[in-house]
Design a protein around this nucleic acid. Sequence first.
DNA 1: CCGACAACCTGTGAGC
DNA 2: TGCTCACAGGTTGTCG
Length: 274
Amino acid sequence: MPELPEVETTRRGLLAYAHGQRLITAVVRDHRLRWPVPDDLPDRVAGRPLLALDRRAKYLLFRLGGDDVDTLILHLGMSGSLRVVDSTVAPDKHDHIDLVLANGRSIRLRDPRRFGSVHLEQGDAAQHFLLRTLGPEPLGDAFDDDHLFRLSRNRRVCVKDFIMNAHTVVGVGNIYANEALYRAGIHPFRQAGRISRERYRRLSAEIRAVLAEAIERGGTTLRDFVSGEGQPGYFAQELSVYGRGDEPCPACGVPIRMQRRGQRASYFCPTCQR
DNA sequence: CCGACAACCTGTGAGC
DNA sequence: TGCTCACAGGTTGTCG
């Protein structure tokens, strides 16, 4: 579920319900996430106001006030989702953590595969070991063709892996890597170091565009999201190639090709992408 | 440093 | 119906 646009959608959805609220405690039913949930999480969130909810890459940053400002860092992994529920609602099988709010509701983390994680960082969360080495935000000023071009020189890795690497740019997952490369007319398996500055100009613009469009679509599902009704891929109809193997390319009609590399599927048009 | 790959988990759907 | 297998939106760690 969570690519950058959906993490951002989650952030915006939570804001209305949680901003300015005080946390009573955290309930940890299963601490076995991607990284062990800190044992002192309940103690350290108890009584603290939620000052802000930010995002860095696919991490949500809950800024906790009090004598110091600490940050609760949360990643949704592959299968994680957050819902605002009435605190009296019984948790489901994979509802591992509740952040219990003073207003009678809880922010509830569900994560069947447990690839998500929760951390606490004192002071500057950007210095957390998982955040420290991340590349620029794709929708921020530091990300452009120049950045991609310079970083890619002498790199033999294929461009799809290059843009999915969080040291290059954050937030580009498998879906949007495929989509951005299709829109930019670049073959996913081309070596990153053998792509011109001009083509990186196009690629950086398309990465930005596809993420921004998806966030916009996510906005329409905010209500469904917080009301816990669940929501299937709202952006799915907009996808040109992802998951569309053997379907005709929207531009030229040639069947979209699906090819597996490592453990990930790549989708591309063999004629439009070079 | 670089690049390829395995690993961490559970749920789901296809095929038999 | 039930079994087995392949696969899924992410990221870290290891090895050559």
